[in-house]
C-alpha cells in the first residue's frame, strides 16, 4: 500500500503531499493533534472523498481508477464509530456482511467470528442505540473485520474506551497485524508505542516525522532528559552551575508552584 495525497477544502490545505508506504504485517500509526489531517487522509484512502491531487494504491488497486475494488480490500472504522442506532448488533453485522457479498451459513459464520473476536456476544441482541460507548466502538470494529480484509483502516479505534478496553483493542490489533496491513490514527503517544511498528507524525497536513517509534523518540531533544525539583530562592546562579556539568547539553528552568521551588529539565549530551 502506498500513497501520495493532497486535499484542499476551499483553499484550506488540509493534507499536503502525505506520502508513505506500508507493507503486510505492519501497523502504521498516524499521530497528530486534532485537525492535523489524519482523518482526511483516511477518508481519501477509503475513497470516501477524492484527493485534490495525488493518488494511492491499495493491494495493487488505485483509489482513483478502481474504488470499488479498493473498498473490497479495506475494513474501515470511521471516526466516532457511526452505526445504525435502530438496529440490533447482530442484525447490523449481518447487514454489513450481506453488503460485502456473504449469504447463508457463511454469513452467520462470519458474524459469529467477529462477535467473538470483539467480545460482543452479550450484547448481540441489543439495540445499538442502547449500547455504551465501548460496545459501540467494538460493534463498529467488528463491522470492519467481517470480510477478513487484507487492509484495516481504523480512525481512533480506542477513542472513548476505558483503560481495560483500550488494552483489549490494542491486543486485538496486534494479534491481527501478522497477515494484514493496518493503519490506525491516534493522538495518544503510548498507543503508538504499544501497537505500531511504524509511526507518522502529521501536523497541519504535513508529515513531520516518520519512522519506528524508537527512531522517532531518539530524534526528540528530550530523549533521556531528567527533571529535578530544587528548593532555591535564586535560580540564575544555579542554572550557571548546572550548565557547567559536562554531561549536560542544556538546562531549562520551569518555575514551581510556590516561590523558592523550581523544576530543572536536564537535556543530556549524546
Amino acid at each position: 500500500m502506498s500513497s501520495s495525497l493532497s486535499k484542499n477544502f476551499n483553499n484550506f490545505l488540509a493534507v499536503d503531499q502525505v506520502s508513505f508506504e506500508v507493507q503486510k504485517g505492519e501497523v502504521l500509526g498516524f499521530l497528530g493533534p486534532n485537525g492535523a489531517g489524519k482523518s482526511t487522509t483516511m477518508k481519501m484512502l477509503t475513497c470516501f472523498i477524492p484527493p485534490s491531487s495525488g493518488t494511492a494504491e491499495i493491494c495493487g488497486f488505485s483509489i482513483l481508477e478502481n474504488p470499488l475494488e479498493v473498498r473490497n480490500q479495506i475494513g474501515y472504522l470511521p471516526e466516532s464509530a457511526p452505526s445504525y442506532d435502530e438496529m440490533l448488533v447482530g442484525e447490523f453485522l449481518s447487514f454489513v456482511a450481506e453488503i460485502r457479498g456473504f449469504s447463508g451459513k457463511e454469513l452467520k459464520r462470519r458474524v459469529s467470528i467477529v462477535v467473538d473476536m470483539t467480545s460482543l456476544r452479550e450484547v448481540e441482541n441489543q439495540m445499538i442505540e442502547t449500547l455504551s460507548k465501548g460496545f459501540r466502538q467494538r460493534t463498529s470494529l467488528a463491522q470492519a473485520l467481517i470480510h477478513d480484509p487484507p487492509v484495516l483502516i481504523l480512525d481512533e479505534p480506542t477513542d472513548g474506551l476505558d483503560p481495560n478496553q483500550k488494552h483489549e483493542v490494542r491486543t486485538l490489533i496486534k494479534n491481527m497485524s501478522e497477515d494484514r496491513t493496518i493503519l490506525i490514527s491516534t493522538h495518544i503517544l503510548e498507543e503508538v508505542d504499544a501497537v505500531c511498528t511504524r509511526a507518522m507524525i502529521i501536523s497541519e497536513g504535513r508529515v513531520v516525522g516518520y519512522g519506528t517509534p524508537d527512531e522517532l523518540m531518539s530524534q526528540s531533544l528530550y530523549r533521556n532528559s531528567v527533571t529535578v525539583s530544587v528548593n532555591a530562592e535564586d535560580h540564575i546562579p544555579l542554572m550557571n552551575d548546572f550548565n557547567k556539568l559536562d554531561f549536560v547539553y542544556s538546562v531549562e528552568h520551569l518555575p514551581g508552584e510556590t516561590s523558592g521551588t523550581g523544576y530543572y529539565a536536564f537535556v543530556p549530551t549524546k
Partner: peptide
C-alpha cells in the same frame, strides 16, 4: 453513517 454506507463496495 454516510461515511460507513459510502465506503462499502
Amino acid at each position: 453513517t454516510a461515511e460507513l454506507l459510502l465506503t462499502f463496495p
